[in-house]
Structure formats: C-alpha cells, structure tokens
Design a binder for these strands. Sequence first.
DNA 1: GTCTATATAGCGATAGAC
DNA 2: GTCTATCGCTATATAGAC
Lengths: 217, 217
Amino acid sequence: MSPASATSTPPKPLGAGRPKDLGKGAAILDAAKRLFTAQGFDGTSMDQIAAEAGVSKLTVYSHFGDKDALFFAAVSAKCEELLPPELFMAEHLQGPLCAQLTSIARAFFALITSDEALSMHRMMLTQSSDLHVREMFWKAGPQRVQEAFAAFVQARADAGELEVPDVRRAASQFFCLLKGELHMRMASGLCCAPDACDLDAHINATVDLFLRAHATR
Amino acid sequence: MSPASATSTPPKPLGAGRPKDLGKGAAILDAAKRLFTAQGFDGTSMDQIAAEAGVSKLTVYSHFGDKDALFFAAVSAKCEELLPPELFMAEHLQGPLCAQLTSIARAFFALITSDEALSMHRMMLTQSSDLHVREMFWKAGPQRVQEAFAAFVQARADAGELEVPDVRRAASQFFCLLKGELHMRMASGLCCAPDACDLDAHINATVDLFLRAHATR
DNA sequence: GTCTATATAGCGATAGAC
DNA sequence: GTCTATCGCTATATAGAC
C-alpha cells in the first residue's frame, strides 16, 4: 500500500490494477474508438487521440505503427462491442410471427440508428482508409446480422409459416426496407430520431410489406 | 492578331471563343465538379482545382468566395446535370404495369449506381461541409425522383391497378428495395457493378415484392 | 519505454506587382 | 482581373533527453 522506494510496477498509472503496458494500450484504443466514431478518420488527429488517452503522441506510434493500423484496430474493437454474441435474436422468439418480426425489427432499427452505428456507416463510405477495413467491417457487422436473420426466416419457412423462394435475398430486402430513407436522412444529419408515432408507422409498414409478400395464407 | 500596346480583350485565354470571364468561371466550376465528385470535399484542395482549371488559385477565390461556396455550386450543378428535366419517366409509360415498373426500376438503378451518383452519395454522408449543401442535394436529387415516382403510383392507384394506402411511403419503400445492399456495397467500394444476370434477378425481385404487396387482384 | 521539441509538408486564404 | 509569393495553421511522423 505505502509507496516504497523501488517497486518495479508503478503504483497506479491510470485506471484499475491492470498491467502498465496494457493499460496504456487500452486507453489509446479506447480514445481512438471514441474519437474515430465521433469525428471520422480525417477529422481525428493523432494529437487528439494522444491527449484523450492521456499519453504522448509517440507512445501512440510505438503501440500502433501508424494511423491506418490504429484505425483498423479501433474499428475492429467497435464492431465487437456493438454486436453482442447472442445477436439479440433469442429474446424475441415468442408470440405470433408478426409480433416476432416487429420485435426483431425494432431491435435492429434501434441498433443501426444509434449514433455509433451511424458514425461507423459514415466512416465506411470515405475512401480515406484502405479496402481491408471496409471488408472487415462488412463481415463483422451487417453480414453477421443478416445471416442470423436469414436463419430465422429459414426456420419459419421450414415450419410452414413463411413462403420464401430465396431466403438470403428476402433477409436482405427486409433490412433494406427497415433502414429506409430514415436511415439515410439520419446518417447525413438531415433529421434526428423519429418520435414514437413515426417509428411505429415505419416498423409496421416494413413488417406489413414483408408479411404480405411471404406469409402463407 | 499582332500584340498591340493596349487591347482590352486578350486574344485567346483558354479554349474556344467564349467570353473571358464566363470561360474561366466555367472551367473552374467544371474542374470542381470533376475533382469533388472524384475525391470528396476533404480530399480535394483548391490548388488542385486551380491547376485542373488552368488558372491561378486566387482566380478561384475571386470567382467563388471560399471552398464551401465552390462546393455548393459544384454540387448544385452536378445535380442538375444528373437529373434531366423529364426525369426519364415519360418514355416508360407503355405496356403492362409490371413491364413499366421494371423499366422504371432499371433506369433508376442505373442512375444511382453510376460512378458520379455514388460519389455524390458518399460526399453527402461525410460531415465535411455544412448542412445547407446536404439539404439542397436531398431536395434536388432523391426527393425529386421520389415525388415523380409517387405521382406515377398515385395515377395507377386512381386507375385501379394498384392498392396503396400511403403513396409516398410506398414510393420510398420501392426505392429502398431498389437500392438494396448492392448500392451500399458499391458505395463503399466492396464490389463493382453486377453482371446482367444478377442485375435482372435484383430488379425482378424488387418489382415482384412491390407488386405482391400492392397489386389489385 | 516514455515525453518534449521539432522536421517536413500541405492546407486555406491573402498581400502586392502587373 | 489575374498571377507569383507568402502567411498562419495543422497534420503526420520523428530525433534526442530522461
């Protein structure tokens, strides 16, 4: 407890009792995640990241080679953070099919219209970073969600509740409808989140169209 | 011909026999359109625009006040260039309804997946410039197209061929389906244009879903 | 291994000569 | 009205002190 004369491990560098190197590395990665998702790639400087992490700029360069590598690491970590492993599908599997779809739709729409997800979507459209980042994001983000939903649709089709010729395409269409023009307007900053009334109308219209096309009579 | 002592009009500034001021202003605007749509706002410098237009940087600043104003002018001009006044609706109004929708869908998909339109879409999602540019783009671009299609749907509903409770929402849904995940993948540079087979499948699936939901029996 | 100070370059915008 | 040269600022990336 008492600060002795010579301890090889410094008493309290930043946060909890984590080892020193990992503590700084984690602080840098955390700051990079916050700033990149808030301001984009070009809008975020290495000075900002170093200041936000409470370290010097050269420490950032010593932990991650350059800006591109740090960006890749930050986007990877953010993808894992935004997508919980259960993919929030399990908790919605009760009640009639219409209610299940509505519940899934509400959860997905809330996810993709969160500030963080909108920022990620914006960043992936800037050609600032190289192709590997975008490929990684696509596989870790939208593709995983879409495949989970496709599995759900396939199960309902096997149970005879849905009639779907192409399951993957139907899942893709469902998500495109769900995004709608609202997603683009929010991504470009033209409007904020819709109120409860508009949100319900949008969700219901999406589920309606999907069921009218694929529900077995 | 011979370089006299004092001629108020210099003989041959750049290209053809256009007036001098308009010639340079047009060259600047043309270069700005090309470079902005190709590289985005942050990725394009005023030096590049001046060099591409064949004038000095200060000439650019004297014609357009600053970079934001030039960007606004360039985006406005590009919107007008990409959207012909007839909105390419008139030529598709023959044959059965399904064929009409398919024809409209093909034309719109070709428009929004052109390199120039994809670049515009990318630029509008980067928060580089102020809100006025995005509002102008939305009104001059997607909103005009969508309203034209909504009028088409309304006419078919009045004729008893479609049953659409909310025409504007249906038009919005049609375009979101038409964009699909293909549009996002192309916008982020993850894939190129689809081949004829995939394109047909996508267009047909879009029209199918729309008609299955709204066609009168 | 970490920090202070700096090298190098490009940006938007401007002053003065013609 | 147009051009050459420059200011002031900020960016990434690095050299030397502790």
